[in-house]
Structures are given as C-alpha cells and as structure tokens.
Design a binder for these strands. Structure first.
Lengths: 334, 334
DNA sequence: TACTCGCACTAGAGCGCGCTAGTAGAGCGC
DNA sequence: GCGCTCTACTAGCGCGCTCTAGTGCGAGTA
C-alpha cells in the first residue's frame, strides 16, 4: 500500500480512500492510484482490514458436506449475503470433523455472524455461541438460547403428506424417524397426530432412524426381513427426509418391491436431487432460497442491533407429488 | 490479550508463547495463563495472528456446491490439512456465483494455498493464480500454468468401462460428453479409442453435454425423441459423470425404458450417492480421499518450497459394476 | 570466585490496513 | 480584504497479535 502511495505520489490514506470507494479523492487521482496498484499487483489485505476496522462483515456458515439440502441452502445464502454487503465463509462437518471444529474455524476467522445448518448442539451450547456471535440456527430449535431460528412448519408439511397418502387409500403408513435430526420431533408428532385424526391410531409405527441414506437402507432391510417372516409390508412410508427416502427406495427396489405399485414413499426437503430420481420423489418441499434469505437477514439484523430478542421465522412447506406415491395396493386378506 | 497478561501477572509476550504452545514458559505459569484466559473468555484473534505472522497456514478450497463428488473430496481434504497443520476455508460456486468471486473470497481471506476443484478457468488465468498462491487444480489440466495438477487416469477408467460394456455384448454405445467439465476431453478421446479398438468405429457417437443432471435429462429426451422417430435406442450410454448418468436414468426410466434390460448406463466418479441409487449405478470410481490428500500435499509442499516445478499426480480409477449395466438386449432386425 | 549456560520471562517494533483530526488551497459572498 | 465553506488530501495512532533481541537469575563448571 505504501508502495502504491509513493508511486502514485499520494499518501497511504488516500490509497485507502480510493480502495474503499469513499468520497474524498479526485477523479484523476483515483484513476492514477488504481492504475499504479494494478501495475504493482497490489490488493488490499483482508486480515489487516478486518483488524483495523474492528468489524469483519463476514458470515460463517456451518453445514454438513453430505447433506444435499444444505448445498441448496448455501446457494441461497451467497446472493443474499452479498446483497447486504457481507462476506461468506463456509465450514463443513464430515464424519471425521465435528461441529465444534467447524464452528471454531469460522469464529477463528473472525466471522461476526454464524449460520448453522441443522446444528446438533445442545441449546446451552448454542446459547453460548449466541453470545459470541450473531447466531442463527436453521432447522434446529434451541429453546431459551440467544439465537434466531429459521425453519419450516414441519407439522403442516407432514399433515399434507399424510392427507395425500390417506386419500390414496393408505392405512399402514410407517414413519422413519429422523433421530436427532432437525425437525424430527415435530415431524414425528405431526405424523402421530395425523394418524390419530384419520382413525389410524392402531396402525401407527415409528421406526427409529436418522437423516441419512444409511438410515433408509437399514429401515428397508428391516421391512424386508419382516416381510420374509410373513408380516405385511406397510403400504406407505413417510421418511425423515429425502436422503433417508432415497436409501429406502434403493433397498426396496433392489429387492423387487415396485414403487409406487407395492409401496409409496414420501420424503422431506425437496433437495435438488429429489426430482432427478428415476421416478421422482414425492416430498415435502422446503423453500431453500427463502430459508437461506431469512437466515442471512436474521444474522445481519442482529449484528446491527444486538439487543434484538431471539426471533423465529416459520416458512410454509408444500407437498410436491411426483412418482413415488400412488394408490395403496389392494389389501390381501391378512 | 493484554487483560490476560495483566491478570496473570505476566507480559503479553508470555501469553502469546503459552497460546502458541512454544517452549519458554514455566509449567505453573502456563496453567495460570490458560485459566485466566478461560475466565475472561479470551480467545486469540486469527486475523491479527495472520497479520503479525505474515503467514496464514490456510488453504482455500473452491468447489461447486451442487457437485456431489466435490463434497466427497472436501471430506478428504479436511483431515489431511489438519494433519499438516493447515486451516481450510471453503468457497463455493453456484449458478449465480462464479469462480472469480469464489476465488477472490479465498484470496481475500489470506489463503496461501488454493485447491480448485474442477476449475473452469483458462490456463492463463490459472497461471496467474499460481503466482499469487500455491495453486493446485483437481481434475482440470492447465498446460504450461504454474499450478499442480491432480486427477485420475481418465483413459484407463473409460477403457475399463468400455471393455465391460463390450463384453456384455454392447455395440451401440453412446458417450455423453462432459463439455468443459474436467477430464471431458480425455474421456472423449478414450471413448473414441476404445470404440475403434473394438471395431466399432462406425457406431461411435458423442452427444454434447455437461457434468450436470440437466445434461443427462436432455440427452435422455433426445434419445427418446429419436426412438419415437423410429431410430433404435443405443444399448448403452457412457455418461460424462455420475450426475449426468442420474439425469439420464431418470428420464429414461420415467419413459418406461428399463435399465439395464433395455439399456445400460455407466457413470464416472462414484460420488457417494451413486451406490445409493435404487439399482446402484455402475460407474468408474475415482478415489476421492486419495485425490484430496494429494491435492493438499501438493499445495503444502509448494508453500514450503515455491521453487518446485508444476507437478502432476495421476491416480488409477477403477470400474465398479452395479445395477445399471447388464447384457445388451437382443437386437431386433434394424 | 568468576565464568558460562540455559531457562523463564519482557520490551518494543512491526504486520497492513482504517480512521480521526487536521491542513492547504480554491471558490464565494459581502 | 476578510471570513466562510467545500474539496482534496495527509499525519499518525491503533487494531491484536508475533517475533527479535534482549534481561535476570540460579545451577553448573573451571
């Protein structure tokens, strides 16, 4: 920077002004500074900038690298953050890299805001984070914690899915639970409520699981094993999310179960891959772009006004009917 | 930091020593400093650290958020970088956020090393980047550029896939090209060579495409339209990558084409989703973890010794036979 | 005793910027 | 001519840390 200043015959401060595009520099000087900088190959150093400025205007996003829906969210986060003048840094969790590491990496790089996609942390941990940075949790509720919360109305989504299945004549509808996955508790409750409402209390069945393909595969194996022991297959499965639904579909289809003729499957999320599956996954759509925009806005608003009480944004999900759901098969005598 | 020093009754320098875990501090003092820091809630500021140190020990990774194979690579990058004592920052490209932006973000945050997953940039652009940071390109060759290059031996992979298909009796094998996608040119060449070698020169057909689901879908539509005009379907398709294969599968299966009875499909990458597809995608496996480790090592080695000439690592891919490839259908009289 | 050596610790410069307070000079009204 | 404002620019401190070149001190050596 000093080099540029000298070569352009101005002070460092003026160079700074030019690079921040502030008023206070003559048109001609401005151009000269930029030209010289270009020749020298000078580019402002962010670390020093952040340090001097005291603020970083950087949002950190934690996501699960293999969660396809998260990549949809990220695609929505970037433009909104840019619009508001914020930088975005990504840090992923993998099977070998936990949330704590991913979050520390973000904080260590001076993120002022934290957008956590489906964090697994306890409310107390989130609360602590919330006091260190403007934090918003996407998908996971954190009661009492000083964080904002963005999610979709799980109950409504599940209800639509269940009504759809019941209308198609399904009665034996199994729900694969999402375990500690975000929204799982709400989805489970909504499933139970829907079953009761449709007079199917006795048919209720929740299989423990997770928001992963593996979970769907395991459930598939379980159901097939039961069938081989003479128990009937369910006629429909409401999976915990799309990934789980995909795992299930794979296992069942491979074993000769035809979807949706023998069994219907409904997912949750509508990640961008869902409509690309060979027969298209019927699923509950969460609007990734909208969720992302709300998350970014919450974080930025909190940065501008830290006094804000924790807020919550609830978006309406919408059932998308594709190829994996169809009329219930005719019931053989049990 | 000054607060900690004062409260612990030592100098700032000593606190610095403690936090960097360097020799030069007594056992007892060390503990006291850490305890005080914990009480105050002090944590070292990375930006200032980088600034003072002149080095960041940070690798920036550019990836395409929707490219599932990239998330596999990322999962391999993290542990290797950590092992070598480097931080990792992620920056994604999306349909609305180009490579330049993603890379500038990384550079702006002081990444010393750049790992570019399937960059789309020209060799000259890569060369320029290579002079600004230790750069390694994964998947895309950049002749003459000052960057390291990690990829798998596309030719070998395609050859295995082609041999497999020919052994199954296929003759009308179409290749969907990956367009500007990394490795496309090599795959295309290898496809052509294999067709010639098997005496199928006349059956050669390369459909232009890209490494996206959409590309597979379009090709599927194209092939179906041809069939409706009375032209025979190919009996096998070698897709540009897994995503393309998935799009193709979706379109064909929906239209009633049965895979692999009517038509076989082979992908490329073996992204973690491939084995989860309902019938499992036959594909050419690139070892993501190995690719990732090589990339990280190249970057780090170049940082430690910038004089290094550009290097290249070639990994052997391996055909993985799953459910989408089978014997060629019996040929009706044409 | 005088010396060196190693250990625990400190002073203070400097990393590359942003920012506040300020100056010099041009233009204007009276 | 004076004071005033406005624009274009500068000086220099400080952000939170690392690092070099030390200081002081007790133990070991000649």
């Amino acid at each position: 920077m000093a080099d540029v200043a000298e070569k352009a015959g101005v002070s460092r401060a003026l160079v700074s002004i030019v690079f921040r595009d502030l008023p206070g520099a003559g048109r001609e000087t401005r151009e000269r500074v930029l030209r010289v900088a270009d020749e020298i190959g000078y580019r402002p150093d962010n670390a020093a900038r952040l340090l001097a400025r005291g603020r970083s205007r950087t949002l950190g996003v934690m996501f699960i690298v293999h969660q396809t829906f998260h990549t949809d969210l990220i695609a929505g986060i970037y433009p909104e953050a840019e619009r508001l003048g914020y930088d975005v840094l990504l840090s992923g969790t993998t099977p070998g890299r936990g949330e704590d590491k991913a979050i520390e990496a973000l904080l260590g790089h001076r993120c002022e805001g934290l957008i956590l996609l489906a964090p697994d942390a306890e409310p107390s941990r989130l609360d602590r984070l919330g006091h260190r940075a403007a934090t918003v949790s996407v998908g996971r509720r954190a009661p009492g914690a000083h964080v904002d919360f963005v999610h979709s109305a799980e109950g409504k989504g599940v209800r639509q899915a269940m009504d759809h299945l019941v209308e198609l004549g399904h009665r034996r509808i199994v729900h694969i639970d999402g375990g500690r996955g975000p929204g799982s508790a709400e989805r489970r409750r909504a499933y139970r409520a829907a079953m009761r409402r449709h007079g199917l209390t006795d048919e209720q069945r929740v299989v423990p699981g997770a928001h992963t393909e593996e979970s769907g595969i395991e459930t598939g194996r379980l159901l097939l094993a039961e069938r081989d022991r003479g128990l009937p297959l369910p006629t429909a499965v409401l999976a915990g999310n799309d990934r789980c639904a995909m795992g299930l579909l794979m296992t069942l289809t491979r074993a000769g179960v035809e979807v949706p003729r023998d069994l219907s499957v409904v997912g949750y999320d509508d990640s961008h891959l869902s409509h690309l599956m060979p027969i298209g996954l019927t699923t509950v759509r969460q609007d990734a772009v909208l969720l992302a925009e709300h998350a970014v806005r919450f974080a930025v608003e909190r940065l501008e006004n830290p006094e804000l009480p924790p807020r919550e944004a609830v978006l309406d999900p919408k059932l998308v009917v594709r190829g994996t759901s169809g009329p219930a098969p005719e019931e053989p005598a049990r």
